[in-house]
């Protein structure tokens, strides 16, 4: 049935698993994630910051090796399972390394018995015995002097791509999950302080959770998943903000579009992403404004559970009189 207005169209019921099933699935996923992180043996990083350490002949080092200072010798006949990262100090490899070796700073030596199964990247302090064997690609001269990377202008294509992606996301929500889009747009438009507050919390805890999980090595995929989810959530929030703006315009200058919610959503999503991309480039305040809008958008997504339930302010629910 073709909707006659955005409100009527937005009230259609979206197909989705029952609430109880979603919650159970979420709980199971969460518990599995937490239990995986509880295993000591999976926290497989050996961190060397000083003194002299040797992995002896016949010794096996499970997990990754990180060296930021001191001297490390992986003796002939030793085996290191994970990747090796050298950020300072001296590292001599004369045994078997199953993963990559990356040494942008510090001194790296490959002895005659060294076998590296992965790629090897080294800085300028690199010595290699002719009998040392590296299966993968060798790159020498890694390491950038500080200040060598600077932000250049341009990148307009990125802004346009972001706007197109947001428009597509908004259109997809408008087509297949209209109630969700409407719920998120309502939260973003009518509860700005609440959405912004929750957005701050989600951003702060999400960022630190991603960093903490990354340090456990085993949860690096979860970190990547979290980052992807974060980007998608912010994009969804932009789409919702865009829809809220377009919906308001549909009561005025865009009245003729009110019967075409998919186009309206795409238009709003494109415009909001484009404007934010441009505003972000304004010195001093631009980044702050873009961040504030993005956090509010993220908060609207979180408040409504990606639009799964309309947000009702508890103050209104309890009918508090002034």
């Amino acid at each position: 049935m073709r909707p006659s207005s955005t409100e009527a169209w937005a009230s259609r019921r979206a197909p989705w698993p029952r609430a109880g099933e979603r919650r159970r699935a979420f709980l199971v996923a969460l518990l599995v994630l937490l239990l995986v992180g509880c295993d000591d043996t999976l926290l497989g990083v050996t961190w060397v910051r000083g003194d002299r350490h040797v992995v002896v002949d016949g010794g096996r080092l499970a997990g990754a090796l990180l060296v930021t200072g001191g001297e490390v010798l992986l003796a002939a006949g030793s085996r290191t399972d994970g990747p090796v990262l050298l950020l300072g100090g001296d590292l001599t490899i004369d045994g078997l390394v199953m993963g990559d070796v990356l040494a942008p700073s510090g001194a790296l030596r490959l002895g005659p018995m060294a076998v590296v199964r992965g790629d090897l990247g080294a800085g300028t302090a690199f010595e290699r015995h002719p009998d040392a064997w590296v299966a993968g690609e060798i790159t020498v001269g890694l390491g950038l002097p500080s200040g060598a990377v600077e932000r250049r202008g341009g990148g307009w294509w990125r802004v346009v791509l972001q706007a197109l992606a947001t428009a597509a996301l908004a259109a997809a929500f408008a087509r297949w999950a209209p109630r969700r889009l409407a719920a998120m747009a309502d939260a973003a438009a009518r509860h700005v302080p609440v959405a912004a507050s929750l957005g701050i919390l989600v951003f702060l805890l999400g960022t630190i959770a991603a960093v903490v999980m990354a340090f456990t090595i085993v949860l690096i995929p979860a970190t990547l998943l979290l980052l992807v989810l974060g980007v998608v959530a912010v994009g969804t929030g932009w789409a919702a903000v865009g829809f809220a703006v377009a919906r308001a315009l549909a009561r005025g200058p865009l009245a003729s579009w009110s019967g075409r919610p998919v186009w309206l959503a795409a238009f709003g999503g494109f415009d909001v992403a484009l404007v934010l991309g441009l505003v972000e480039r304004v010195p001093w305040v631009g980044g702050f404004v873009a961040l504030a809008v993005s956090l509010t958008a993220l908060g609207a997504v979180a408040l409504t559970g990606v639009g799964g339930r309309p947000f009702v302010h508890a103050g209104e629910a309890h009918a508090i009189d002034a």
Binding site: V194, S197, L198, L201, L205, H313, A314
Partner: peptide, 19 residues
């Protein structure tokens, strides 16, 4: 504190304590 004040009024204490 400001975030907490806004969210307390909007969400209730259980959600905040979960955070």
């Amino acid at each position: 504190a400001v975030v907490g004040g806004v969210l307390y009024g909007a969400l209730g204490e259980r959600a905040l304590l979960a955070w």
